[in-house]
Structure formats: C-alpha cells, structure tokens
C-alpha cells in the first residue's frame, strides 16, 4: 500500500492531549502517518474522531503534546501556505446558502489559487455540472456532500481529511464517492477518513485507528487488528443426517461446540488452532459432508474493541 520510494512521515502526533473546560476529549494520542496511507478513524460518536481531525487541520491546538503536519505545527494561522496542500470535508458540511454551487466552488478555488477550468472540471466530476447555477440552499444532502468533496479536491491536495464522508448518500453515490477518492489516492494523496461504515472502507484502509472515549484502543492494519483481538474462527460442519451427536462426541474437547442439531453443528476455535481442527474434522471420514469456515467479521472486530475487552 505504501509506496516505499516516496514514503515519508506527513503527520505525527506525540502524546497529544486535548481537554476542554471540564472534559478530556483526546488522551495521549501517538500516531505517525506516512504519505500515501489511507487511515480510517473508527469510533462511536464523541469518541474524538472529529476532534482529532480538527487538530490536524490546525483549527484547535493540543492542550499538551506535539503535533506536526507536513513538518510543521498546524495550529492557527502560523504558516498559511501550508494549507494549500490540505483538503477537508467536514461532517455535515455547510456552505453559503445564497451562492450558487459554481460561485461557492470558485470562491474556494480563488482562495486556493486554483483555476476556473479546474472548478468546472471538479463540478462535472462530482456530477454537479447541471446544478452549478442553482443556489446551494436548494441542494439536497447528497448534492451538498458532493460539492463538499469537490471543494476538498481543489488543488490536488496532498492530505485529504474526510469526516464521515458518506453519511446521507445513497449506495450508488457512495460507490461513486469512493471511486473519486481512490483516484486521488492513486495520485499519491494521503487520506484520513472517519467513518462508521466499516464495510465501505475495509478494502481501502491501509490502517485503522480505533478510538474510544478519546483513547486509541487499537491501531494497525486489518490483519494486525485481527491478531490483536484474538477473535474465534467459527466453523459450521454438516454431517450425514442423524450422525451429528456421534461426530460431536468424536471431536472431544478440542473446540467449543454449539448449535448441535440433527445434521450440523458449529465449532469455534482460535485462529492458530484452526488448521489442526480442520485436519481433525477431515480425518473423520465420509460422515462429514460439508464444512464452512467463517472468519471473524469486521463488526465483530469493532465491537470487540469497543466493548472494552480489548487492550487499552
């Protein structure tokens, strides 16, 4: 996933802590993001995803700890030009309602020094070419979101921050939306996406960062997370009708067995016991008619970390 030639650290957070008057929203965050990565922030509402993104954008500053984006502290207006390389789509994006879609985009384009031609290209790309002359006030949620993506893509940003980008989009639009992001990704952009919809981002994410009450409870690639979580693999074994209980007896205590009925039962075991178990089952002979292996699903992984039995 990471292009080794150009891989370099674009964002680094070191023991970042953020507290408002009476509550801590982020606690001791350490994170290093390499260029070209696609980081997905996962967590409940209020887990600190948006707070984290805002801080990387320099809209807020950490209470303690240090943060660097593209080699500099992003907080406030220190280096304005640095923000040329950023693109941001806020959660429930808001625009100037009285302006038309085209006016909004060209306003932002002027601030970023992008050309009029690029505006038009982006409007067409997100499918707003026909609605460009309408006031944003008349736009639907999906159209706003697409306009939001268009403005985030202005000037081919190196860093793309997308906060819950697909809420309110229908499945077809979602698909299209991710295709657009994929294109940017191919050009080498780094993206940070916060999302609830794990299955949508599963294949795109280079790494997941799971946040819970302002704490990073897990961080890593999907495989790493599965390893950390030590979730059971489930196997459904179908046997000749009537033979189930006899087969279960022959399984011994190697695995926990549930849902036994006349012709099938479920087994669950740990990942590293899986192969030996499968070998054992196949050695039972013809009574075993079928075997379905079900690896742990993403939402099981998610609830594993969210329900507090994960490492913290």
């Amino acid at each position: 996933m990471v292009n080794l030639k150009s891989a370099s650290e674009v964002i680094s957070l070191q023991s970042v802590h953020k507290a408002y008057a009476n509550e801590t929203v982020l606690h001791d965050i350490n994170l290093s993001i390499q260029s070209g990565e696609c980081i997905v922030l996962v967590g409940h509402n209020g887990a600190g995803k948006t707070s984290l993104i805002k801080m990387m954008l320099g809209l807020t500053r950490p209470t303690s700890g240090s943060i660097e984006v593209l080699g500099r502290a992003p907080a406030f207006s220190a280096i304005v030009a640095q923000r040329l390389a950023l693109g941001y789509l806020p959660e429930s994006v808001a625009f100037y309602e009285a302006m038309t879609g085209h006016e909004v985009l060209s306003f932002y384009a002027q601030l970023k020094g992008s050309s009029k031609a690029e505006c038009k290209k982006l409007l067409d790309l997100v499918g707003l070419g026909d609605a460009a002359k309408r006031r944003v006030g008349t736009y639907s949620k999906g159209m706003r979101q697409r306009l939001g993506l268009a403005q985030a893509m202005l000037g081919n940003p190196q860093l793309l921050f997308l906060d819950e980008p697909t809420t309110g989009l229908d499945p077809v639009l979602r698909q299209h939306f991710y295709e657009l992001i994929d294109d940017l990704q191919k050009e080498g952009a780094t993206s940070i996406i916060s999302s609830h919809a794990l299955h949508e981002v599963e294949s795109r994410a280079s790494r997941f960062v799971i946040l819970k009450k302002g704490i990073v409870v897990a961080c890593g690639t999907l495989d790493e997370l599965y390893q950390q979580a030590v979730l059971p693999v489930r196997v459904k074994v179908s046997v000749t009708p009537g033979e189930a209980s006899r087969v279960v007896e022959r399984m011994g205590s190697a695995a926990s067995i549930t849902d036994v009925n006349n012709q099938s039962f479920h087994l669950s075991c740990l990942m590293d016991e899986k192969m030996s178990l499968i070998r054992h089952i196949s050695s039972l002979g013809d009574v075993v008619q079928d075997m379905q292996i079900m690896p742990p699903r993403l939402d099981e992984l998610y609830s594993h970390f969210m329900n507090g039995d994960g490492p913290s």
């Binding site: 304005v80 941001y88 601030l111």
Partner: peptide, 16 residues
Amino acid sequence: ERGTMMLLLTYPVARW
C-alpha cells in the same frame, strides 16, 4: 454557528 468558518479557516487564509 453554521460551520462555514471552520471550512474557511482550513484554506490558506490567515485569520486577520
């Protein structure tokens, strides 16, 4: 309140 300021400030403009 509307949230347009947040987006504006992620652009290369200084607050002043």
